[in-house]
Simulated assay, not measured.
Amino acid sequence: MKKVKLPTTVESLQAQLSKERKEHKAELKRLKKELDKEKLRSLANSTMIDLAEKMFNISIRKKSDAK
């Protein structure tokens, strides 16, 4: 198990917490950006399937009444 060195002064604790907070904010920003990109990709795929179904008059998606 990895041992964590705890800060001994209030200032060092505040500095560590500030650093961790910045890292968490950066990670959250990255994840939100990734989520937005994935939502856009999903919308593009759905739109592409809709257009293909109309244009080629074929059924691509599964029907809900599958046996």
Rank of each mutant, 00 (worst) to 15 (best):
K3W: 10
A15K: 11
M48L: 03
K39V: 00
I60Q: 00
M1S: 15
A52H: 13
A66I: 14
E34C: 05
E53G: 05
K62I: 06
A15T: 13
L51E: 08
Q14E: 14
S42E: 08
K67H: 07
L51D: 05
V4L: 12
D50V: 02
S42M: 03
L43E: 05
K54D: 15
E53P: 00
Q16H: 12
E53L: 07
I58Q: 06
A26L: 10
P7Y: 03
S42V: 04
K3V: 11
P7V: 04
E11P: 02
R61P: 04
I49H: 08
N45W: 00
A26D: 13
A66H: 05
E20M: 09
L35G: 01
K3L: 15
R30F: 10
E38K: 07
H24Q: 12
N45E: 09
S59M: 09
S12W: 04
A44T: 09
T47K: 14
S46V: 05
E23D: 10
T47W: 07
Q14K: 14
K37I: 01
K5R: 12
K3G: 02
K32L: 15
F56E: 13
T8C: 06
K33Q: 06
K54V: 09
L17N: 07
K22D: 15
D50A: 02
S59L: 10
S46N: 03
S42W: 03
Q14I: 09
S64N: 07
K25A: 14
R61N: 03
L6D: 01
A66P: 00
K25D: 09
I49Y: 10
E38C: 08
K62N: 11
K25Q: 14
I49P: 08
K67T: 05
K29E: 14
Q16S: 10
N45R: 01
K5C: 03
L51N: 11
K19P: 02
D50S: 03
N45M: 03
S18I: 01
A26Y: 01
L17M: 10
L28Q: 12
L35W: 14
K19L: 04
K32E: 06
A15Y: 04
L13P: 00
S64P: 01
K22T: 15
S18K: 14
L6R: 02
E53S: 11
L40K: 11
K3T: 10
K37Y: 01
I58S: 03
V10T: 11
S59C: 13
K63D: 08
F56G: 04
E20D: 15
T9E: 07
M1P: 10
K22V: 11
K39H: 00
L51A: 05
A26G: 07
L28S: 13
K22P: 02
E53V: 02
